[in-house]
């Protein structure tokens, strides 16, 4: 596992520098408007890009013949994504607190809750992305994710049109402590590892 994480780290530093820079820029903008993008960029795009680069160089073919189990190959991508989210969290919180302390921009009232929610959304989206890509490969996986996002957008849009559905969901969320959001999302993320592993196995058989 350590070898796979090291490999992903090197690849991120060399090939995904632009992505990391965008993440940093989003986290630096005072006021927190762009913070959601920091997490989404880190969690979804970096993980998906790493898998895409593995497919492109055919490292994934070689890795299956090296002393890594299929579970390690799958789990390493999750761990890379989680580490990315932690890095985004540290960068965002540190920078936004610096802005607040220096008087550049105050922290909003719901900053903590918002951060918890963003982490949760990032974890869920990362889990879905990784699961789909491991099953269908990067090219087909990306198409399916676009379709899924459009479908989810449609459902959320319909719920928004029916204001009571959305407010019921918001009330249910408000009853939970904000820390619960990322914890539940992390549990979901871990639960999808065996699903991704199975999907990857099915894809390798074809």
């Amino acid at each position: 596992m350590k070898a796979l994480l090291r490999k992903d780290f090197y690849v991120m530093l060399t090939q995904l520098r632009g992505l990391l820079l965008v993440m940093l820029v989003f986290s630096v903008i005072p006021g927190g408007t762009f913070i959601p993008f920091t997490f989404l960029y880190t969690a979804v795009l970096s993980t998906a890009s790493l898998i895409a680069l593995d497919e492109q160089s055919r490292w994934d073919d070689l890795a299956l013949m090296l002393p890594y189990s299929r579970r390690q190959l799958v789990a390493s991508k999750y761990v890379t994504g989680w580490l990315g989210i932690v890095a985004a969290l540290v960068a965002t919180v540190a920078i936004q607190y610096i802005w607040a302390a220096t008087g550049v921009a105050a922290l909003g009232e719901g900053f903590f809750t918002a951060i918890c929610l963003y982490i949760a959304i990032a974890l869920v989206l990362q889990a879905v992305t990784v699961t789909v890509i491991f099953r269908f490969g990067y090219v087909w996986g990306r198409i399916m994710i676009v379709i899924a996002v459009a479908a989810i957008g449609g459902v959320v849009g319909a719920a928004a049109a029916n204001g009571s559905t959305l407010s019921t969901a918001a009330t249910a969320l408000n009853r939970l402590h904000p820390v619960t959001y990322p914890l539940l999302a992390a549990a979901l993320s871990v639960a999808t590892i065996p699903i991704s592993e199975h999907g990857y196995k099915v894809r390798c058989e074809k």
Partner: peptide, 11 residues
């Protein structure tokens, strides 16, 4: 050893 090196090219 596979038919191509299959290593990440940026390394």
């Amino acid at each position: 050893v596979l038919d191509e090196a299959h290593f990440p090219p940026s390394l």
